[in-house]
Amino acid sequence: MSNEIWVFAEQQEGKVRKVSFELLSAAVDFSKKTNQAVGAVLLGNGLQQAVKSLTPYADKIYLIDDPSLASYTSDVYLINMAPFIKEHQPSVLLGGATSTGKDLFPRLAMHLQTGYAPDCTGLTIEENGKLVAKRPLYGGKVFAEVVFSEARPQMATVRNNTFLVNENLKKSAQVISIPSHTDPAALKKKVVGLEKGAGTKLDITEAEIVVAAGRGIKAPENFKIMEELADVLNASVGTTRATVDEGWRDLKDQIGKSGKNISAKLYMAFGISGAIHHVLGIGTCKTVVAVDTDPNALIFNYADYGIVGDLFQIVPALTEELKKVLKE
């Protein structure tokens, strides 16, 4: 196989996102089996740092560094990416199942007339380079292994934390600079503003640990104890639709069917009853802890560890205990 395995290296403000490194690490593993080169595709403006951070993870970096790419829109990325994908015909193109990935990939795949598997939770490759993608359907009630037709590249977006970052990679990628194709007249939409979410916390889809509280927390100001717990664990704070609908929390932190799917290593639910709509969003979390006053709360069906108890007692005590233990 001569065609390459590519990863769309998504950057935010010049910093490559963790999921891209996860996927590059997986791609390097795949490449050993298929004997293909690994390429990172990097678009944006002012990307020296990003290029440097990617160098150990790929054989080649396809770089378009141009002012027109300073902020992401699917149009400008598509115009720039499509031509050189057609030219190089990679065998695989992977991206994170981030808001950008989920925005760009379907349109790009349609444009390239190729197959695309969205929001995957597992990928394997066969020696002949055929990708097998595993993805949840019906909110995770079943999974499907999907394979691709003959069209190339085989495209997939993959959830955060599906693969581990391999920090021992020591490749030194060759940088291939590509001129921008941006034709300002052809651009149909533009970003006119950006509102950053409060704080520096990772998005709940990215965080390795997510702690969440539902209606059981009773009032918006009580989320303070959740923030304190999150700080000790370097976690992000999630929630249920009930509190979002009450206006206590922002929609971006809602876990579940009409919110986000998370794949955290540890998910802790406090005062969350465990409605199917909610737990469909945590199916791929590795370890789940539930704390609820109601011993019959359905959330315990989906947990690894459970405590029947009052969150107002448990959360502060847990914060203190963790502080103590993690200091050691």
Binding site: Q12, G197, E206
Partner: peptide
């Protein structure tokens, strides 16, 4: 909605 914030676009 974008990860970690909101984006305002016009078209």
């Amino acid at each position: 909605e974008v990860d970690g914030g909101k984006e305002i676009l016009s078209c």
